[in-house]
């Protein structure tokens, strides 16, 4: 089956990002296809490379980045949500006059159209978080 995953909450406060990560990994292990992972609302906070949790805690951003690399995942961060919350790639930082780039490897900033396209193209769109 072909899935698009939407993640609407940030890491650590709620379990949604952990659950989405575990689901995505399990689906890939079971031979399913992940068309796209779309980070929306506070979910864009999963994409900051400035994530630095204590050593005995999981690093969700890093887990997502590794999964993306292993499976060539298309991980998209909603541009409007990212701009509001300070998630910047080089283009956005330049455009908005910010001096830091903090988008983590494997994530890319794009528009809401990618969410709709995911819904159209996939057998299921699964939403994690509210």
């Amino acid at each position: 089956m072909k899935f698009t995953i939407q993640i609407s909450t940030g890491p650590y406060t709620h379990q949604a990002s952990d659950t989405a990560y575990k689901f995505t990994r399990a689906a890939l292990d079971a031979g399913h296809e992940i068309h796209r992972v779309f980070f929306y609302h506070d979910g864009v906070n999963n994409a900051t490379s400035y994530t630095a949790p204590p050593q005995d805690d999981r690093n969700l951003q890093q887990l997502w980045s590794e999964l993306a690399e292993q499976h060539s995942l298309d991980m998209v961060v909603c541009v409007a949500a990212a701009q509001r919350r300070g998630i910047m790639d080089e283009g956005e930082a330049k455009k908005n006059g910010k001096d830091g780039v903090n988008i983590a490897p494997g994530f890319q900033i794009s528009g809401l159209g990618q969410l709709i396209e995911g819904g159209v193209q996939s057998d299921r769109l699964l939403v994690f978080g509210d």
């Binding site: 609302h41 809401l112 969410l115 709709i116 396209e117 159209v120």
Partner: peptide
């Protein structure tokens, strides 16, 4: 909360997909 505004945004962008 941001949800009403975001919903409207997605609906308008999604309209281009002719669903």
């Amino acid at each position: 909360s941001v949800y009403a505004l975001e919903s409207l945004e997605v609906v308008l962008i999604g309209a281009a997909f002719e669903q």
